[in-house]
Write a protein that binds this DNA or RNA. Structure first.
Length: 141
DNA sequence: GCCAACGTTGGC
DNA sequence: GCCAACGTTGGC
């Protein structure tokens, strides 16, 4: 199983919106960046991801699971763009803010810190554990 | 609201 | 295939 991070502006699509979709999940559509799309192509069902609020909040708020592998993005006719489906699994014990992530030496290599514009990105297993530690959540939840 | 960083586009 | 111009993202 691999770990990822999904960025969303909460005024457009928030964690609460994601939770409201329930177990059926929702397309992670609208990605128009090759790097991000290529990461989605690597995703497997059951992979986990952090749900991160950009712009407003700037914090990781919950954990999602990939529930459909990559398929055409229904929000465009352009065949270049594909996406996966994700569903909400559980909220973090508390939100972990970007400034905390930047202040944590063990997270200095996170893509979020070094390439803040990439909207879908991989997270290492160590980083995954540290985020959960900061959130007061069990990584195995 | 500003602007730096980055990605994409298109002319050559 | 280079690179200038432009558009977008996202932190501040």
């Amino acid at each position: 199983m691999r770990y990822w991070l999904f960025k969303s502006e909460p005024n457009v699509w928030s964690w609460d919106d994601q939770v409201a979709k329930g177990d059926q999940g929702e397309e992670w559509d609208g990605i128009r960046n090759y790097q991000a799309r290529n990461f989605m192509r690597e995703m497997q069902i059951g992979d986990r991801g952090l749900f991160y609020h950009s712009n407003i909040g700037k914090e990781a708020v919950g954990v999602v699971e990939v529930c459909a592998t990559v398929h055409p993005d229904s929000s465009t006719d352009d065949p270049r763009w594909e996406c996966v489906d994700i569903r909400a699994l559980y909220p973090l014990g508390r939100a972990v803010r970007l400034d905390e992530i930047k202040a944590e030496p063990r997270l200095a290599e996170m893509v979020l810190v070094n390439n803040s514009r990439l909207s879908v990105q991989p997270v290492s297993e160590d980083e995954w554990r540290v985020i959960h530690e900061l959130a007061g959540s069990l990584a195995e939840a």
